[in-house]
Design a protein around this nucleic acid. Structure first.
Lengths: 139, 139
DNA sequence: GAACGCTACATGCATGTGCATGGGATGCAA
DNA sequence: TTGCATCCCATGCACATGCATGTAGCGTTC
């Protein structure tokens, strides 16, 4: 709420500003590269890949039949509505499967399909290579 | 083009992946906060503020009548088309002014209006406060 | 158990974005 | 001059996103 800092420090302000610009630049560079390469090769965007990765991780922890949507939505930095549509797209693409919970029929479980696991397995090395290329050089 | 690294190093791969996740999280947190607060208070988004800031910086360097669009587009991490529309929105809002170059009539100059300078002056402290709140705590 | 509020997800709508393309301006070569 | 490739910006289109709202299920209170 305070418009200008009580303890105004120009040097700290400049440092923060440059940190933010660097973050913006790295984010744009990497996200753009992922969208382009994974999009062309596997039909995946940044969010799609992130979701596949989360599902794969959850699957390793407990091999049950998927994970609650709510638990996943928080991990991909999307609004609730955007997440809902992301899952819908990926279900249509055959990468995940939605099933209503039996104990709480408001919620849904989201599980990888075999195709989803396979797609992730193939896309992962490309994703990691892009990270190495764009994040690796600490410019 | 190489699908999997010649020098495969699981530890380095994990480190890169976590670095990317942290970057995604920080970007989402900060960008979202900026969009919300600057949007409510000043009708500005992340890109709008960035452009105002670049224009203000260029203006200080050489107080001439603006900057070439091409030179600015590279600094805000937008596609050429998105940048074109960003400028159109901001011109409509009275924040910038477009003028055709006289020497090369393909290009345009983009200059701050008085309203644009004023809006930036007011928004800047809020922007910096958000950066301090979201980037400052090195979680 | 009826009514109410709350939660979990879906959807209508407005908007911002990237890709492909369009259209005018420039430069160069024949 | 004419023709052609290129550059700079604008625009049609498809699509992803966020906000607001809708809908169905849960829980509590009386």
């Amino acid at each position: 709420m305070t418009d200008f800092d009580p303890d105004h420090d120009p040097a700290a302000e400049t440092a923060l500003s440059e940190q933010w610009r660097a973050l913006l630049a790295r984010h744009a560079l990497t996200a753009c590269a992922i969208d382009r390469e994974l999009g062309e090769a596997f039909g995946l965007g940044v969010s799609e890949f992130e979701l596949l990765e989360r599902l794969q991780e959850f699957e390793q922890e407990k091999p049950g039949g998927g994970e609650r949507a709510q638990a996943l939505a928080n991990t991909v930095h999307l609004s609730q509505s955007a997440f809902s549509r992301l899952v819908a797209r990926m279900e249509k693409a055959g990468l995940v499967r939605r099933t209503h919970c039996v104990d709480d029929r408001r919620g849904i479980y989201i599980a990888l399909t075999e195709e989803g696991r396979e797609r992730y397995r193939k896309a992962r090395p490309v994703h990691r290579r892009i990270l190495a290329e764009t994040l690796g050089p600490e410019v």
